[in-house]
Design a protein around this nucleic acid. Structure first.
Lengths: 197, 197
DNA sequence: AATTATTTTAAACAAACGTTTAAAACAATA
DNA sequence: TATTGTTTTAAACGTTTGTTTAAAATAATT
């Protein structure tokens, strides 16, 4: 692995664990076993390093999800697949949701938000299909925006309070994972129930 | 207003707006028009000031919500009231959810989490009643834990991505508030639908 | 083998941070 | 009015922060 990649990998781990502000470039350098100056040699600044990492994350995970939403599958199938895939991604990367939220709140300017939610909140195709199904009378007359937010909330929010859920319900890592697998069905059933006539 | 209260009020505004790390005690002192040393005179440290503010917030908002959950109302009524009250609270304080999440992630030790979720995730009474209704055959056999997480997710998560929702759907503050008022009914209907036999 | 380009290093930079000091200003008490 | 207690002030403290410098080490090129 190149020095550049080792920096990125180490930095990501620390950013996920402790957040941007509480991770110093000395923390990163120490853990990656590199000189501090190399951080500014490869990336111009800490902020730049972060953005590079974050872009990489979006590029890694969004194509699959947006692929599902943009496909030509029937809407029920899309919902089912989307829920399953999204939860699988978050099970592999449980801190991802809070990570994205922290970016959103640290960087409230519109351009940044645009980029993020154009990837992560890509409702365009889905909403059109949803509205069309409503028009055809195939599903109940539900607001597509409300529906998409429901889906997003049910999938992602539990991961932001993972530790709370675990402690409150006496779970370990394994039982939490099991709980989330069950949750795929819970969420899908719930969502389909609200649109089924 | 006393100096102590002016510090707390100003600090809360800044903590909500920029977060703990990005708010310096000099920012607070400047905005509250007080000397920096007064901060350590009234509160021993920045961390202590924060905890004092956070405790105050929990004491302010949790009694109402836990009062609903702990009441002797029928479960459908509880759900309805809880959703309405919680959304009203968050409409008054839209950054509260992310604020709580940031505390959870900054302070991952168990004792802190206990205190927070004993207030904010007080499922004890509710889960018992829920399980009892299932046993009696009054509602569908749904996992109380999953149900409570559904409710919490649907209510709180949208506020953590408020800016994204607004920009994506061309909303202003008023239309967002309207959207959230509609959402009370959306969420209640959805939750009742999943348990109604 | 000599030269150029790239990568890594140790050391220092200025700025910002939370915190503390000790004296001054003010209020309350006797 | 003199004295005690409380509140506020200006200034400085030692650390830590992200960043930069300039030289050394290594790799690539001719």
């Amino acid at each position: 692995m190149t020095t550049e990649d080792r920096i990125k990998k180490t930095a990501l781990t620390l950013f996920l664990e402790k957040g941007f502000e509480r991770t110093s470039i000395r923390d990163i350098a120490l853990k990656a076993k590199i000189n501090i100056a190399l951080l500014n040699y490869y990336f111009r600044s800490k902020e730049n390093l972060f953005n590079s990492i974050f872009s990489g994350l979006l590029e890694k995970y969004t194509p699959t999800l947006n692929g599902i939403l943009g496909s030509s599958l029937p809407i029920e199938e899309k919902i089912h697949l989307y829920v399953e895939e999204y939860i699988d991604i978050l099970l592999e990367n449980p801190k991802l949701t809070y990570f994205v939220l922290s970016v959103l709140h640290r960087n409230p300017d519109k351009i940044t938000q645009m980029k993020i939610f154009q990837s992560l909140y890509n409702t365009g195709d889905f909403s059109k299909q949803f509205a069309e199904e409503v028009r055809k009378g195939n599903i109940k007359d539900v607001d597509p925006t409300q529906f998409f937010i429901n889906m997003l909330s049910l999938i992602t929010f539990p991961f932001t309070i993972k530790q709370v859920i675990m402690e409150k319900n006496h779970m370990n890592e394994d039982t939490f994972e099991q709980f989330m697998h069950q949750r795929k069905q819970v969420i899908t059933d719930m969502l389909l129930l609200t649109i089924k006539k």
